[in-house]
């Protein structure tokens, strides 16, 4: 799968709900597979575990929710 198309559907769903989720689940991790929102989790490990109990590794999105997408600077 091309890198730029990876998680395209999941990211579209995420962006459509980002503002709402940033208020209801700030800084939490959301797990999305296709059009299904699996759940919201405070810790990355718990989110990953929840996704792996339903889906194969590498097939679902685990993304932390911020109102604005951060750009991580590396010096």
């Amino acid at each position: 799968m091309l890198a730029q198309s990876r998680f395209q559907n999941e990211l579209q769903l995420f962006e459509a709900n980002r503002e709402k989720w940033a208020h209801s689940h700030p800084a939490q991790y959301v797990v999305i597979h296709g059009k299904e929102v699996v759940g919201f989790y405070a810790e990355f490990e718990n989110a990953l575990d929840a996704g792996l109990r339903k889906f194969e590794r590498g097939t679902f999105l685990v993304k932390q929710i911020f109102e604005k997408e951060p750009v991580y600077a590396i010096y």
Binding site: R6, F7, L48, V62, K63, V71, I74
Partner: peptide, 23 residues
Amino acid sequence: LLAVSRTKVFVVGGGEVTGDVFS
């Protein structure tokens, strides 16, 4: 490793890119 997400990264000398996030 396998990717679980995508995010934006700014690397000095390389500019802003969107890359994978791995678990």
